[in-house]
Design a binder for these strands. Sequence first.
DNA 1: CATATTTCTTGAACATGTTCAACTTTTTTA
DNA 2: TAAAAAAGTTGAACATGTTCAAGAAATATG
Lengths: 223, 223
Amino acid sequence: MSKVEKPSKNQKTKDELYQLALKEFMKSGVEGTSMRHLAQLADMSLGRFYYYYPSKEAVIQRFYEESLIEFAQGVELAKVNTKDFSTALAFVVNHRVTTYRPYRELLIALSRSATDPRSQISPFTEATQPIRDEVITSFKELLQHFSVKYDSRLEPYLAELLWMYSMGVMLFWVFDKSKNQEKTDSLVKHLTPLIVKMIHVSGYTMSKPLVTPIVNLLKAVLK
Amino acid sequence: MSKVEKPSKNQKTKDELYQLALKEFMKSGVEGTSMRHLAQLADMSLGRFYYYYPSKEAVIQRFYEESLIEFAQGVELAKVNTKDFSTALAFVVNHRVTTYRPYRELLIALSRSATDPRSQISPFTEATQPIRDEVITSFKELLQHFSVKYDSRLEPYLAELLWMYSMGVMLFWVFDKSKNQEKTDSLVKHLTPLIVKMIHVSGYTMSKPLVTPIVNLLKAVLK
DNA sequence: CATATTTCTTGAACATGTTCAACTTTTTTA
DNA sequence: TAAAAAAGTTGAACATGTTCAAGAAATATG
């Protein structure tokens, strides 16, 4: 009756096709996998595949959406697995990198799409991206959970900034050509405590004048 | 006799094709311009066009290279047109945005390529990109020209960091959907003096302990 | 149950980026 | 200057992402 409750054969096919595509993308890369090949693997006509995913990018987009869900879950996990905010933030980012590792190939394709302002996927664009907002909300909760203290003027921006930090690390990771992407690990290990310290310090009365220009910057640029 | 001095008909044709392609890209967008159309406009066969530019991306790549040259020139210009380092840095970035403005469409395509780690174009990748190094060198000279004082441990990184800042602003600009991209102007206006102040402050003895973790970060992550 | 409507499926066609073997013209070499 | 090598050019072919009119199957409606 309602729209939600039927898993509908349609949805099931869609899911299967997605899994299939994902596996093939990992094996042969995104560009190395043709839509015809995918259709063939799924034992269906090309047109039929396109009925379920109207474009190759649509499959990537789905991957992005699934990732965001896992992202939010990772933030939740951080709450129970860590003792302070700094390790929590590092945990979130590392968790993301870890779960992405098998999908590196895919993430490259994703980052290509993401850097197109016209794309729905771009993490910077403030499209009505409900899942994106969910992640940002869970960052807000994480801050509260650890009772992080900071300059109240940062309140409207801080969670979103943390989100941007995470996405920035992802991008760095995609580019990271060092063995096992260990530079990314370094980056997170060094930068995370720095950021957290800055957040803390922003709360001290003495640093108010330092925070003011930053707040002005954020006010002018975000939202 | 030498390799350099003949502008060779080849090179001339290449230049003309580039200009032609550029104009068409601006008019119809990069994706909206087919290689066939370009060949037709140039009154040559498709295969012939491909003889000069082996791919569409090669044309974009050329645009990138030309841009880098202008970039370096912009840094030189800043030397003579500004009185202090902060305005110089803002000048460089604004100059870049200004000269890019007519090519916004192209820059989107560029940023797509740039965000592919496999591409030659990526600003982050430390490919042997001689022109890139030239820009970084001119940043070094700019620092010297204004006798900017800073923590000496930053010396190996500072110029490259400024380069990254500029590229970051470019990326922001591409995404900036505000009217006339005025948010980018805000960003530059607010952020540039902040950065310059931080550079200055790094030189004070009292801030050495603050700089140390940052230097460690840079050491671990760059180069 | 018969009909109308929606959902699904097919197969062919199209547009476009790219490749390449064959051919022609230009330049170098002896 | 004749032969050989290099540079330039052609046109057809290929692979791939995407579209779409037409039809089949499933579902809703009266």
